[in-house]
Simulated assay, not measured.
Amino acid sequence: MKANLKLFNIVHLLRVSKVNVSINGTSHQCYTSRPDLEKKRAELMARGLPKQKPIPGVNNILLVASGKGGVGKSTTAVNLATAMATLQPKLEIGLLDADVFGPSIPLMMNVNESPLLTEDDLMVPLLNYGVKCMSMGFLVTERSAVMWRGLMVMSALEKLMRKVHWGNIDCLVIDTPPGTGDTHLSLIQNLPITGVVLVTTPQQAALQVVRRGITMLKKLNIPIVGIIENMSNITCPNCKTSISLFGSGTHQLAKEHGIEVLQDIPLDSDITNSGDSGKPIVVAEPDSSQALSYIQLAEKVADFLRKQSKLET
């Protein structure tokens, strides 16, 4: 009796049905999935998946992502957005700081005011250097620690995306937090992503993690624009010789996955200091070789968007 009851429970939990199968003239009992239950389960799973919905007024969404933290992702996002706005002033460029726990955009873009609200209770992005900015950092003080669990973070992210009066945006650059967690999945599942720019340093500790990010993006069929090798070298202040710091693993990784290395950006104190002062290097020293690296990057990203017929010339 107990054995029969146990078998019934297993059959019930697995949602299978019993069928008789004849093998070499001998009848055997087998268990197979019930088609009606399989169909019902597929319908329920499909119903539970979030549907991608565009942000009103936003034509292109570009993620700037990394595996490891501290590889210069926010610096890249800031200078990329600023360079795009500088190259083509007619384009409307937005910058969204999706790092709820560690927002950097307020500091790097020198915008710290609380956003105004429209009559529809939509937040108005703060504008600087021709870029419309939105960040969790605008809603909390500099010393406040955001201590939230996943659901609250996702709710905040949803408001930063959709409770904002973006107007008409040709390209919204989203600075994502490190890793491949809830924030990335929420963005990818809920938004029509045009492409992703990956940022890494060339040492193996960073490359191993960005490799996982590439795997995730390919599984989810998200276009990868290319990889940026950040802090790839340093220039000697005396002899001006370029010195490699961490090797050249980024180019090998890109070759393995058929991805373009968009730009090699050096480790440079001027880039760091400009970000800390709230004036990106593209604005602070527009004619410098450092600024040229980001301008070239912006041109390649714009070419990618144009090839997808999602950016006007």
Results as ranks from 00 to 15, higher is better:
residue 220 L to R: 10
residue 264 D to R: 15
residue 222 I to N: 02
residue 232 S to K: 14
residue 225 V to R: 01
residue 263 Q to T: 00
residue 249 G to S: 04
residue 256 E to K: 15
residue 222 I to M: 00
residue 265 I to V: 06
residue 240 K to I: 05
residue 249 G to K: 02
residue 236 C to M: 12
residue 222 I to A: 02
residue 219 K to Y: 06
residue 224 I to Q: 10
residue 263 Q to K: 12
residue 235 T to K: 00
residue 217 L to P: 03
residue 259 I to H: 14
residue 216 M to G: 10
residue 258 G to K: 11
residue 262 L to W: 12
residue 236 C to G: 09
residue 242 S to M: 02
residue 228 I to T: 15
residue 228 I to N: 15
residue 218 K to C: 03
residue 219 K to S: 04
residue 237 P to I: 05
residue 239 C to Y: 01
residue 261 V to M: 06
residue 244 S to R: 13
residue 218 K to R: 09
residue 257 H to S: 01
residue 220 L to C: 04
residue 241 T to W: 09
residue 230 N to S: 09
residue 227 I to H: 07
residue 265 I to A: 09
residue 216 M to Q: 04
residue 222 I to E: 06
residue 252 Q to C: 07
residue 238 N to H: 08
residue 243 I to N: 15
residue 245 L to E: 07
residue 231 M to H: 11
residue 242 S to H: 13
residue 262 L to G: 03
residue 255 K to G: 05
residue 235 T to A: 11
residue 244 S to T: 05
residue 245 L to K: 13
residue 243 I to H: 13
residue 232 S to T: 01
residue 223 P to W: 11
residue 222 I to S: 02
residue 265 I to H: 14
residue 264 D to C: 14
residue 219 K to A: 10
residue 260 E to S: 14
residue 257 H to R: 08
residue 232 S to R: 08
residue 256 E to R: 00
residue 255 K to A: 01
residue 259 I to Q: 06
residue 225 V to F: 15
residue 261 V to N: 00
residue 232 S to G: 12
residue 231 M to K: 05
residue 227 I to K: 09
residue 254 A to D: 10
residue 217 L to Y: 10
residue 252 Q to A: 09
residue 236 C to R: 06
residue 250 T to K: 11
residue 240 K to W: 06
residue 239 C to D: 13
residue 222 I to D: 04
residue 237 P to N: 03
residue 226 G to D: 01
residue 222 I to P: 11
residue 245 L to M: 13
residue 252 Q to R: 03
residue 257 H to N: 01
residue 248 S to H: 12
residue 232 S to Y: 07
residue 239 C to F: 12
residue 238 N to C: 10
residue 249 G to I: 10
residue 253 L to N: 01
residue 227 I to G: 09
residue 233 N to S: 15
residue 255 K to W: 03
residue 258 G to Q: 00
residue 220 L to K: 15
residue 255 K to Y: 07
residue 224 I to F: 10
residue 221 N to T: 10
residue 237 P to T: 11
residue 218 K to A: 06
residue 235 T to F: 08
residue 256 E to Y: 06
residue 251 H to K: 09
residue 214 I to C: 11
residue 234 I to C: 15
residue 222 I to V: 01
residue 253 L to V: 00
residue 252 Q to E: 12
residue 247 G to K: 05
residue 227 I to M: 13
residue 249 G to R: 08
residue 229 E to Q: 15
residue 215 T to H: 12
residue 254 A to P: 01
residue 220 L to T: 04
residue 222 I to C: 00
residue 230 N to A: 04
residue 261 V to S: 03
